[in-house]
């Protein structure tokens, strides 16, 4: 992310980063470390603790010709900016009959796993995926974390990027030529013939691990990384599920009224007659995220529950 931000700032002088502790502190997750010294205080802009205010300033600056990247420390804090995101950023193009757009990128951390309890750990990207006018991204791989930002900055409309906190810890080899990636399509991360596991963000690596375990049982699971939560890449989803005839959605959001519910419904609407089993779901338990490790782990999707759900769709539960 740090390199992606640096490159963006170098390539387009309209781009600037704003948010709490992005400058002098270097970013809550060290994502913007060193950038203020390199680009100055006007382009790495520390903000007061005013999520609604500075998000709105980002919206206005975008409408006024700049290309802001607004960082909201975590998705829970983004609720303080929800008025600006929903009532202005997502609606001004429509209310104005297409006259004004908001080319704004908002980044935030999401998800559980760091024992940060019930006000810092939720996965609310599914809520945002409910809102027309927004594009919702959830990078899970290093390539996507690196490459989605630049593409998002070219969009004429607001893009929200949800970065799972557990992915900040992952490191690995990245091609030195890695660059911008598309922000339209889901990706098949593992091909398979027996069922489709649909997931995104922090659950991708758990799902891939589950797929490898299933393989030892002779079950070949296809793993789809949704990448873009709105608009959903229905073509990739339906092609895969129509072929494997079985699907399990793994979503760190709560089950009720969730993105997983939306995906299951669309599968029912579009490929029901090709399905051999009901769509399975692995979601977060209906509880605010607890502090102790064992309860936090039990609340969110884990490999054993993914395995159970996968076997159940195959009648092997």
């Amino acid at each position: 992310m740090n390199q992606a931000l640096r490159e963006a700032l170098q390539r387009d002088e309209r781009i600037f980063l704003m948010g709490e502790d992005v400058g002098a502190y270097g970013g809550c997750y060290a994502v913007s470390k060193g950038l203020m010294a390199e680009f100055g205080e006007d382009r790495i802009r520390d903000t007061p603790l005013s999520e609604s205010g500075f998000t709105g300033f980002g919206i206005g600056a975008a409408a006024g010709g700049l290309r802001p990247i607004v960082e909201l420390m975590t998705v829970n804090f983004s609720l303080l900016a929800l008025d600006q995101i929903m009532n202005t950023a997502a609606t001004i193009r429509h209310m104005s009959g297409g006259q004004f757009g908001v080319p704004l990128v908002i980044r935030m951390a999401t998800g559980a796993g760091k024992q940060l309890a019930a006000q810092h750990s939720h996965s609310l990207e599914g809520w945002y995926a409910h809102i027309p006018g927004l594009r919702i991204l959830a990078p899970a791989t290093l390539e996507d974390a690196r490459g989605m930002l630049w593409t998002a900055l070219q969009e004429p409309d607001p893009v929200l990027i949800f970065e799972n906190v557990m992915l900040y810890n992952r490191s690995g080899p990245l091609d030195t030529g890695a660059g911008a990636v598309d922000i339209d399509r889901a990706a098949i991360r593992r091909p398979g013939r027996d069922l489709t596991l649909l997931t995104y963000g922090g659950s991708l690596f758990k799902t891939l691990e589950a797929a490898e375990a299933l393989s030892t049982e002779g079950i070949e699971a296809e793993v789809i990384d949704l990448r873009v939560l709105r608009p959903l890449d229905e073509a990739t989803i339906m092609a895969s599920v129509g072929r494997t005839r079985r699907a399990v959605v793994v979503d760190e959001g709560w089950r009720a009224g969730s993105l997983s519910a939306e995906i299951a419904a669309r599968i029912g609407e579009q490929v029901f007659w090709r399905m051999d089993a009901p769509v399975g779901r692995v979601c977060t338990a209906e509880v605010p995220i607890p502090y102790p490790r064992h309860l936090e782990d039990a609340a969110i999707p884990q490999v054993p529950r993914i395995l159970e759900a996968a076997r159940a769709t195959l009648g092997k539960g």
Binding site: N2, R93, P156, S171, P173, D175, G177
Partner: peptide, 26 residues
């Protein structure tokens, strides 16, 4: 109409892998 812009930029061409890698963190 008027939910998102009528015209969007074309997606970027996929990067050609160089084969060389470096350790990266998100």
């Amino acid at each position: 109409h008027h939910v998102t812009a009528e015209a969007r930029p074309a997606p970027p061409p996929p990067a050609e892998p160089t084969g060389a890698t470096a350790t990266a963190r998100p």
